[in-house]
Design a protein around this nucleic acid. Sequence first.
DNA 1: TGCCATTGTCGATGCGCTTCGACAGCGGCG
DNA 2: CGCCGCTGTCGAAGCGCATCGACAATGGCA
Lengths: 335, 335
Amino acid sequence: MVTINDVATAAGVAPSTVSYVISGKRSISPKTRRLVEESIRKLGYHPHAGARALASSKTNVLALVVPLRTDLNVAVVMEFVASAVTAARAHDHDLLLLTKDEGPAALQRVASSAIADALMVMDVEAADPRVPMLIALDLPVVLIGVPDHPAGLSCVDLDFTAAGSACVAHLADLGHRSVALIGPSPAVYRRGTSYATRFLRGFDDAAKSHDIRATNRPCAHSYEAVSACLDDLLTADPDLTGLVVHNEAVLPGLLSDLRHRGLRVPEDISVVAVCPDSMAEQHPVRLTTVAIPAEEVGAQAVEMTMRRLAGHTTPEVRLLGPRLTRRDSTAAPRT
Amino acid sequence: MVTINDVATAAGVAPSTVSYVISGKRSISPKTRRLVEESIRKLGYHPHAGARALASSKTNVLALVVPLRTDLNVAVVMEFVASAVTAARAHDHDLLLLTKDEGPAALQRVASSAIADALMVMDVEAADPRVPMLIALDLPVVLIGVPDHPAGLSCVDLDFTAAGSACVAHLADLGHRSVALIGPSPAVYRRGTSYATRFLRGFDDAAKSHDIRATNRPCAHSYEAVSACLDDLLTADPDLTGLVVHNEAVLPGLLSDLRHRGLRVPEDISVVAVCPDSMAEQHPVRLTTVAIPAEEVGAQAVEMTMRRLAGHTTPEVRLLGPRLTRRDSTAAPRT
DNA sequence: TGCCATTGTCGATGCGCTTCGACAGCGGCG
DNA sequence: CGCCGCTGTCGAAGCGCATCGACAATGGCA
């Protein structure tokens, strides 16, 4: 293994000088800098991460806690993770992956073992048991999602309330008078995942203010569940002309079932989906969507984390404005 | 921060004794052990990861390199990652996530900074530029996928050749005489991803040995591509009765399009999909599948890695046998 | 009873790095 | 010309732990 001493010897300087060349924390003459940098390159020197962590109390590692369950969109999680990793690397940090399954204890462990410099936590529930622990932790923490009591924690998320409203507003503007929300699986609501509730609130509020009929129904992933869900909604209101789908996993089944029932999209029924833009084009009808900006959320989360690490201590809550893209799955209802 | 010294003082022993209690590398009297363990618990002691890494040259971290591209199934990658994280934790290791985008240099960096004890690399191409570098690395390395020249590296993967054969055999056994393979997107082949080629080989071999007509065609993700692909295949052979789909992303579009054409599954055409079992039930017709055992591959990869870390130096290549589950999308062709 | 092997514990050392105080050299100023 | 304040470099200390050799205490055996 190549150490800082090897580099120092090769360059004919003291080890501390090499350290200062690398960190830039003291001024170095151009000549010395060149000498040292050359030796580093020539020897292929990389500082030992453990030694560095020990001496400086910084690991240059960010820990990310992700949910593993499958009743929640895998593609979104993956997109988020990808973007977080990339953003972290851009700030010269690595990404350690933890799972929600490990519970609060894992967070303790990571914090007190000095494995990571900061925590990012996905899939935060309204009354998440991890929140009080995270607050006590005295590491920078950024939540993806917004719990009921974020206290001193930073949060970032799509503004789901606004997203719910945007979907309804779009349909209302097209002239629809009766719409339904097909929500996440019942398990998501049961868990108290806050985005589901927030979206529903936005949906209901907008329906009220636009004075249109609105119902909603959670829906599990299986084809049977989707089919039953549609049965319910269409029976309850045969005049239903607009569907808001806040559940990416059911989209294929749903569209297929609609066609099977002889309902054309968008002629007979309009569909607005809440999903990543990348999914919009994978269906026979290009979907009008409110995008889930997983990539942007990931980048923002990292950026907020880096700000905290840089000393900005005031927590922030960032809610990203929804972006609705009209494609081919929505139209004015037939009169 | 609580250090080993604090624990030692609290327990009235030397720091080294505490260390030995934790590592179990020397015998300790029951009395002392109890005393120390109690102090550890009481103080909430967790060894400092950096210090430990420095002193022992072990990080208890596994690095996993994943592909970020989206032309390859995200769900499979995610499932794999999830299983790897879980398995790693079961062995008291953490998982560091790297992306394929960072290229070979990132592997160098991780190795020579002693950030991780071993590397697991997904999405290995036939002539992957990372392979020679990995061989030179002198860290334990486990590849997910099989390159042309694995030299001294361990590999684990589904036996895609056998999987391709199994699909054809199943259709042939049902009485089909003409089948087609809808493969991954052209980009996957272009990249030289070995599983695509291996699957195709198994498919062709089995077709030959069962003496049935077989064609194949790569297919991109968009609905248009799927539709064009079906046009081609059905034009080329109107008597086509069996489809093998080695491309999870196109399944929804494909099934939808088949129905649109008036082709019923399985009455008019049988479909065998290669995908995770979890996807089989999400479609109107429950799909006969050869499972992509991402979870098992992840667990095996970690297990192989741990074996290497434990001193088993001989590399192994493990190919998991394919498992075909018959569901509702395959049947005998109408005569 | 005396010796040796075993068991259990302790101190000291060093892993590779960052960081702090010290200080030599130098130019600018009065 | 002499002093001061920079700039650039060095040496030493210490981060928290694992590990090695040393060694006291103990028990078994002759």
